[in-house]
Every structure is written in structure tokens, then in C-alpha cells.
Amino acid sequence: MALRLLHHTRTAAVHAVLILGAGLMAYPFIWMWRASFQSAGEIFGAVANPPPIWDSIAENYGRALFETPLLRFMLNGLIMTGGILIAQVLTTVICAFALAKYDFRGRKILFALVLLSLAVPAQATALPIFIVLAKVGLLDTYLSMMVPYLTSGFAIFLFHQFIKSFPDEILLAARLDGMTEIEIVFRIVMPAMLPAIAAFAIFSITFHWNDLYWPMIAIRSADMAPPTLGLLFFRSQGGGGDSFGPLMACATLVTAPLILVSLVAQRKFVQGVTMTGVK
């Protein structure tokens, strides 16, 4: 009896600590959501007669969506992350297939290059790429946002691990059936590796949707800004207490897509975001 009581007390204590921690982790989100549901005066102090919550929500989100270029920023972000992902998957799957299933001279050098590229942080290559883009007049375009990331050493590495274990007999059978090599890659191998591609896709989308460093360099006009850069433009324009609610509504909407995906596909998400560095 006493032992059981002790056990329950201990469990309760563990939960208390975990809940306190979870509260601290979630607090900025809760504060942001709450602020986006309130009128300008309410957020930083009591107001005698706060307007009904639905009015505040309509006001904040209405202004965020229709009086700021937020939708444009989100569309830019979608085009950027989507374009990067498509280019990455197309270039890396066939390259990983070649590395795993063909024997050709230079294969080892290529693989070493892939490994080397893993240790190079994206920011280190920014200046030369910027100079070239400026020379050819491509700054401030969708292409310039995607250029540094059209392929990914990380994806090649990951997919190579996967394709290596893909049975050769199936490839052989497909060849006997008269399939071309490119058909084999896209119609047989790629469908089998969808889980790996999905995990990488989550990693890639998270990284590029949240990236501020490169868009700050490549993009100059608000029209082309992805959400991260767009938020900074928006903040530098407004700033007054009046636009605070809409600003929090914008922040809520910018963070919403990734939060929703992480709630729906939690396992996959954790796997995708943390596959750097664990095996």
C-alpha cells in the first residue's frame, strides 16, 4: 500500500516536471495564438470593454490576409520549397541509383564529393553564388532562391543507402521485360523508396520554408519574398501597436503549415527532421 502510494507520488512528480517543461515550450505559441485573437488594446493590458473575440479574430486575420502581401509571401514560399524539392528528388534519385547499381570510373570520387558536401554549411557558399547571380542578372527571381539547393548531397547519401539494398533480381527482370533504365528508376525503384523520399521531403521543406539566410541575400523586392523575409518587411513597415494583432496573425499563419504537418504525421516528421546525424 505504502509502496503503491510512493509509486503514484513519483509518477505524479514526473508528470509535474514534464508538464512544466511542456508549458514552457508551448508558451510562446499559446501567447502568439492568444494575441492573434485579441484587439490591439487587450494584449498588453486590460481594456474595460474588449470587443467580442470573433470581431478581433476577423479584424486581425482579415488584415493579415488581405491588407498585407502575406498570401503572396506564402505563395512565394510554396513555389520556392516545391521547386527545390522537385529538383532535389529528380537529380538525387537517379544519381543515387547510378552510384548504387552501376560500376563506372569516377564513382568513388563522386561519392567522396557527396560526403564532402555534407560538411559544408549552406552559408559558406553564398557569396560566390551571389556574385554569379548578380553578374547574370538573376537576383530577385524564383530561380535565384532555388539555385544553391537544386541538388542535395545529403539526399544522395540517404537514397544511396536505400537503393543499395534494392534487389538486383527485380532490376534484371525489368530489363528482360524490355524496360529502359530510366523507366526502371522512375517506375520501379522510386515507388519502392517513397517512405525515404517522404522523410527527406519533410526535412527539405522544413529547412527551406524556415530559411532566412539565403532569401535575405538573393531577394530584394517584397513581391518575391518568402514568408520569413516577408515577415521582416511587414514588421519594418508597421511596428505600431495597432498592427500588432495582424502581425501575430501573420506569424500564426506562417508557422501553421509546418505545425499542422508535424501534428498529422508526427512519426514521419520526427524521422525526417532528425535523420541528420542519427542512424
Binding site: 508551448a26 515577415l231 508557422t255 501534428l263
Partner: peptide, 14 residues
Amino acid sequence: VIYFLPVTSTLTAM
């Protein structure tokens, strides 16, 4: 899920 929220969220916004 809760402890992982900050990792996935857009740091610029937060």
C-alpha cells in the same frame, strides 16, 4: 509533439 513544436516552427516568426 509539444517539446518538438519549437524545432519545426519558423524561427523568424517565433
